[in-house]
Amino acid sequence: MNRSVFVTGGSRGIGLAVARAFAEDGDKVAICHRSGASPEGLLGVKADVTQAAELEDALRTAEEAHGPVEVLVANAGITQDTPLLRMTDAAFDNVLRTNLTGAFAAVRAATRSMLRERRGRVILLSSALGFLGAPGQTNYAASKAALVGLARSLVWELGDRGITVNVVAPGIIATDMTASLSDRRMEDVMRMTPLARPGTVDEVVHAIRFLAGPGASYITGAVVPVSGGLGMGH
C-alpha cells in the first residue's frame, strides 16, 4: 500500500492503533487530534472536529504532505453520560457535535479529493450501544445510531464515483473509555455479549483494514459489528 490515509481521533485508543496499522502496511498516515503531542512516526495535525474550518485546514495539511486522501477513518468521539432528566442541552449537543457532526464534516472535507480521483474508502466508527441504547447515554446512542443513516445516504451520493462508505460498530472494547465502567455495568454488558468478554483494539483494527483493503471493493453501506454478538442483527 502507499495510500494517503486520514484518521480523526487518532492520538489514542482505537484511532491510534488504526493509524499505526496503516503505517505498518506502508500507507502515508495523518491523524487529527485535539490535544496532546503527535504520536511518534505519524503526521499529527491539531484540529477540533467540531470546528469545520479547523478540520478543513487539517485535511489540507495532510494532502500537502501525502497527496489526496484515499482512506478516511472518522473515529473521533466522546461520551458525556448523564440521566435524561439531568442532561443539559450542552451535554447533549457536545456529544452530537463531536460524534456525528464531526464525522459529517470530516467526510465532506475528505471526499472532495476522492470525487476528483474517482476512488476512496470512508469508514465511520459507530457503536453497538447505538443500536441497543444504554442508560445515561441518550446523547451517545443517538449520535452513534445516526452515523448509519449518514453512511447509507452517502453511499447513494458517492457510489458512482467508486467511493465506498461503511460503518464499524464495536461493542465493549478494552480501551481507556471503557476502563471507567463500573464492575456492575461491565457484568451487565457481558451478560448481553454472547462471547462473554470485551473485545480488543486489534480486533477492531482488523475490520477497518479489511474494509479499506482491496478485498472489500464491492462492500458499501454495510454495518460491521465487532462486538462479540452484542447488538447482533442491527
Score class of each variant (00 low, 15 high):
residue 12 R to M: 13
residue 103 A to F: 12
residue 74 A to E: 06
residue 27 D to R: 13
residue 85 L to Y: 06
residue 219 I to G: 01
residue 174 A to I: 06
residue 166 N to D: 05
residue 121 R to Q: 13
residue 149 G to S: 03
residue 224 V to L: 15
residue 102 G to Y: 08
residue 36 G to D: 08
residue 32 C to T: 04
residue 50 T to L: 11
residue 216 A to N: 02
residue 92 F to M: 15
residue 47 A to E: 13
residue 181 L to C: 05
residue 198 P to C: 07
residue 116 R to T: 14
residue 226 V to R: 06
residue 115 L to W: 04
residue 16 L to M: 00
residue 149 G to F: 01
residue 73 V to T: 10
residue 159 G to I: 01
residue 39 P to D: 10
residue 25 D to M: 15
residue 134 A to N: 15
residue 9 G to F: 09
residue 173 I to W: 09
residue 80 Q to R: 15
residue 62 A to S: 15
residue 83 P to Q: 08
residue 135 P to C: 07
residue 106 A to R: 06
residue 168 V to Q: 08
residue 3 R to W: 10
residue 150 L to R: 04
residue 82 T to G: 10
residue 62 A to I: 04
residue 143 S to G: 09
residue 181 L to H: 09
residue 120 G to F: 12
residue 205 V to L: 05
residue 34 R to V: 11
residue 128 A to N: 13
residue 191 R to M: 14
residue 95 V to M: 10
residue 217 S to I: 12
residue 228 G to Q: 01
residue 31 I to W: 04
residue 230 L to K: 06
residue 95 V to S: 12
residue 211 L to C: 11
residue 23 A to D: 09
residue 202 D to F: 03
residue 122 V to H: 05
residue 145 A to G: 13
residue 163 I to A: 09
residue 70 E to L: 00
residue 158 L to Q: 04
residue 232 M to A: 15
residue 115 L to S: 10
residue 116 R to C: 09
residue 176 D to P: 12
residue 33 H to Y: 13
residue 188 D to R: 13
residue 204 V to L: 13
residue 143 S to Y: 06
residue 117 E to P: 10
residue 16 L to R: 01
residue 117 E to S: 14
residue 174 A to C: 05
residue 174 A to H: 08
residue 177 M to F: 01
residue 66 H to R: 02
residue 28 K to M: 07
residue 49 V to T: 06
residue 122 V to N: 07
residue 153 S to F: 02
residue 52 A to Y: 05
residue 174 A to L: 07
residue 13 G to K: 00
residue 143 S to Q: 06
residue 57 D to Y: 03
residue 13 G to W: 00
residue 20 R to H: 06
residue 156 W to R: 14
residue 67 G to T: 08
residue 33 H to Q: 15
residue 19 A to S: 10
residue 173 I to F: 09
residue 79 T to I: 15
residue 194 P to K: 12
residue 37 A to K: 13
residue 129 L to Q: 07
residue 59 L to C: 14
residue 166 N to I: 03
residue 4 S to G: 07
residue 130 G to W: 00
residue 23 A to P: 03
residue 29 V to M: 08
residue 177 M to P: 03
residue 190 M to Q: 10
residue 215 G to H: 11
residue 17 A to S: 15
residue 227 S to V: 07
residue 218 Y to D: 01
residue 22 F to A: 10
residue 208 I to V: 15
residue 44 G to A: 11
residue 186 M to I: 04
residue 42 L to V: 05
residue 175 T to P: 14
residue 168 V to K: 09
residue 23 A to E: 13
residue 6 F to L: 14
residue 32 C to N: 14
